[in-house]
C-alpha cells in the first residue's frame, strides 16, 4: 500500500504564518520592481534572496517573517483550526530562492531587465500564496516531475 506515504505526518505549523510571510515578501518584491534598474533594486532583491535562503535552511517559521508573525500577529489571532506540514512551504522557499537567486545573479552580471522580470515572477507566486493560500511551487513540482522523465524516455 502506498496510501501512508503522503499522509500521517506529524502535526505541523500554523498555515497562516507562511501566508503572512508571503505578504511581506510580496511587498519587498513590489519595492524591488519599483526601484527598477537602480542599485536599490539589487539590494532589495538580495534581501529577498537572503530571506528565502533562511527559509530553506530553517523552514518558514525560522525566517524573519516567521519571527514577526509569532511575535506580533499570532498573539492577536485565535488558535489555528488546522495545522500544516512544514515541508510544502519550505519547498516553496526553495523555489523562491531559485527564481530570485537567478534574477540577482543576472542583475549583478549586468543584465538590467532580469531584476524586474524575476522579481515579477516571484511576486506572482508570493501574491498567490498570501492572497489565496496557493503554493505555486508545490503545484509545479508534480508537473515538473511529469515532464522530466518523459523527455528522458
Amino acid at each position: 500500500m502506498t496510501a501512508p506515504d503522503a499522509t500521517g505526518r506529524a502535526a505541523g505549523i500554523d498555515p497562516r504564518g507562511p501566508r503572512f510571510g508571503a505578504a511581506l515578501t510580496a511587498a519587498l518584491l513590489i519595492a524591488t520592481i519599483l526601484a527598477g534598474d537602480s542599485p536599490a533594486g539589487l539590494v532589495l532583491l538580495a534581501l529577498v534572496v537572503a530571506s528565502f535562503a533562511l527559509g530553506v535552511a530553517r523552514g518558514v517559521q525560522g525566517t524573519w517573517q516567521g519571527t514577526l508573525y509569532a511575535a506580533l500577529i499570532r498573539p492577536r489571532l485565535s488558535p489555528p483550526t488546522e495545522r500544516e506540514d512544514p515541508a510544502p512551504p519550505r519547498f516553496a522557499q526553495f523555489v523562491g530562492l531559485i527564481i530570485t537567486g537567478v534574477g540577482l545573479v543576472l542583475g549583478l552580471a549586468g543584465v538590467t531587465w532580469a531584476v524586474t522580470v524575476f522579481a515579477a515572477v516571484a511576486l506572482v507566486a508570493a501574491f498567490l500564496n498570501a492572497a489565496f493560500g496557493l503554493c505555486l511551487g508545490c503545484q509545479l513540482y508534480l508537473i515538473g516531475r511529469r515532464l522530466v522523465p518523459s523527455r528522458a524516455a
Binding site: 503522503a6 499522509t7 505526518r9 515541508a87 510544502p88 516553496a92 503554493c135 511551487g137 508545490c138 508534480l142
Partner: peptide
C-alpha cells in the same frame, strides 16, 4: 492523487478517510 509538497492534499485525504 497527491504530491509530496501539497498541503490541501492532507486536508482532502483526511476528509475522504
Amino acid at each position: 492523487i497527491s504530491a509530496e509538497y501539497c498541503s490541501p492534499c492532507r486536508r482532502s485525504a483526511a476528509l475522504w478517510t
